[in-house]
């Protein structure tokens, strides 16, 4: 069943990964063709007039974007987080529920497999696909940095893989939410909404210390790039919270799905 799941979800994985690769390619090509001595000055002039809060939102108060790795640490990191989280949310919303929405569950459920077997195959497929997406984007970014002669491998690996701490819990949370519904359309909206609300809360929390608490309501805080850039290490508290969210969600998915009415 896992083989079949991987086949069904291959198309989505390829499309989302190509979108990611395409956007990173544009950035690398742009930086390759820039005259950095002149561009650096104009970028710095531009940043100097921008409000500090806006710079802080994109980590530009601690990192310059006059190099390709500088760009990667700011906008590139946000981009990886957004694209992988959107993919994980949509995958989590659909992977289990699609069988019910398409009514193919009547076939699948009549075969000699338990509901837990179905959930396990879907979970493994989701994790493999998210893993492949991260692996491809990471390898591509390593290649891009090597070609740009701007490779800082340890930090690049941390920044490339840290968004998994948000993407994987998001996948499971969306999968858990989907067990409360019978049609994918509503859950897709909830999943995408969760990504953008999380992203927005994290951005807003960076602007003003008074609303800093909002970051605790955002899944994006689990893979906060600022921590990695300033400390040059992963935030283990965030990783532990990610693992706890995953464990609770996985337990919830198996519990809910084994009791769900497959109508």
């Amino acid at each position: 069943m896992l083989k079949r799941e991987l086949k069904i979800n291959r198309k989505g994985l390829i499309i989302w990964t190509i979108v990611g690769l395409f956007l990173f390619s544009i950035t690398y090509i742009t930086y390759f063709n820039m005259d950095m001595s002149e561009t650096s000055k104009s970028i710095n002039d531009m940043l100097a007039v921008m409000p500090k809060e806006i710079l802080k939102m994109f980590n530009m108060d601690i990192v310059g974007i006059d190099t390709v790795f500088g760009w990667f640490k700011t906008e590139g990191y946000t981009f990886i987080t957004l694209i992988t989280c959107l993919y994980a949310a949509i995958l989590g919303s659909n992977i289990l529920l699609k069988e019910e929405s398409d009514k193919t569950i009547e076939f699948l459920h009549s075969k000699p497999i338990t509901r837990s077997n179905i959930v396990s195959a879907k979970i493994w497929c989701g994790l493999i696909n998210i893993g492949i997406m991260f692996a491809v984007l990471t390898l591509f970014n390593i290649s891009g940095m090597v070609l740009s002669d701007d490779l800082h491998l340890k930090l690049l690996l941390m920044l490339s893989l840290a968004p998994m701490a948000t993407a994987i819990p998001l996948f499971f949370v969306c999968m858990l939410i989907s067990t409360f519904f019978n049609k994918t359309s509503k859950v897709n909206g909830i999943g995408i909404g969760l990504v953008f609300v999380s992203y927005f809360l994290q951005l807003v929390s960076a602007i003003n210390d008074n609303v800093n608490f909002l970051k605790y309501f955002s899944l994006f805080t689990l893979s906060d790039g600022r921590d990695i850039i300033t400390n040059n290490s992963l935030n283990f508290t965030s990783l532990i919270i990610s693992v706890i969210i995953i464990i609770i969600s996985v337990g919830g998915i198996y519990y809910r799905y084994n009791r769900k009415e497959l109508v």
Binding site: I105, E106, H109, S110, R259, E261, L262, V263
Partner: peptide, 9 residues
């Protein structure tokens, strides 16, 4: 039938 097939509880 759905009860026989265990699709519903």
């Amino acid at each position: 039938i759905k009860c026989i097939m265990n699709q519903i509880n």
